[in-house]
Amino acid sequence: MHPILKDIRLISFDLDGTLIDSVPDLAAAVDASLGELGLPVAGEARVRDWVGNGSWTLVERALTFAQGHLPGEEALARSHEAFLRRYGRDPGSRTRLYPGVRETLDALQAGDWILTLVTNKPYAFIEPILAQFGLERHFALCLGGDSLPQKKPDPAPLLHVAAHFDLPPSTCLMVGDSRHDIAAGRAAGFRTLAVPYGYNHGEPVQDSRPDGLVVSLAELV
C-alpha cells in the first residue's frame, strides 16, 4: 500500500487524463462540430491541451482557435449542443484506459476504500464510458461537471462527496492529473495525489504541489 493511503477511507478519482485517455474521441467530436460550421479543424494535439475544464470551455477554446476571436454566447451555445450530439454518438470507441488502472481499481475496490469519481465531463457520458470498460460498479458515487452548480477547481463537488459518506475531508484523497484537481482537493481539505501523464495544459502537474505523485496508479497498491 502506498504511504499516501494511510488513514484514507475514501478516494475520489478524476476521469479524463487520470483513468482514461479520451482525447481521440473528444477531438473527433470537436473537429466534426467545427467542420459543420465550415471552420478549420483543431486536431488531436491542440484538443489535448484544451480539455479538463468541462465541455463548454472545450468548445469555447475550439471556436476561439478556429475563428480567431472569442465566440458570442449564442454561437457558443449552438456549437456546444452540436459537440454534445457528436460526442454522444460515440464517446468511447477510441478511448483507452491508462496502464495499471483496471488492476488498481480492482485492488482498491477489494480493500476497505470507498471509490468515487469526480469529473468535469458531463454526467451523461460517465456511465457509457465506464460500462465500456466494465468499471461501472467500482464507484460508489459519480459526479459530473453538471451534477452541481460548481465544478473543479471549486471544492464543492469534493465536499459533497465527503458529506455524502459522512466522512471528514481529512480522510479523503483526490487523485487527478491537473492543477484543477489539486486545487479542488486542497481547498476541500482532501489529501492530493497527481499523475503526470494526463492533461494539464502543457504544465507539469507537480508545479501544483500535490501531496504525492505517482508515475502509474499501480503504485498505489
Rank of each mutant, 00 (worst) to 15 (best):
G35M: 04
V30C: 03
D25E: 07
A27R: 05
I20F: 14
L37Y: 11
V23Y: 02
S22D: 08
T18W: 05
D31C: 04
I20A: 10
L39R: 12
K6E: 15
D31K: 00
I8W: 01
I11C: 10
I8T: 14
I20L: 15
A27L: 07
G17V: 03
D7V: 01
F13G: 08
A29Q: 06
G17I: 02
V23H: 00
T18L: 12
L34Q: 03
A28R: 15
V23F: 01
L15G: 08
V30P: 03
P24D: 05
L39P: 11
F13R: 08
G17D: 08
S33Q: 15
T18H: 12
S33F: 05
V30N: 01
I8C: 13
P24V: 00
I4G: 03
A28N: 09
V30R: 00
I4V: 13
L15P: 11
V23K: 02
I11Y: 09
I4W: 00
A28Q: 14
L19C: 09
G35I: 02
L5A: 10
G35S: 13
L10M: 11
R9G: 12
D16C: 07
E36N: 12
V23T: 05
D31F: 02
D21A: 07
L26V: 00
G38T: 09
D7L: 06
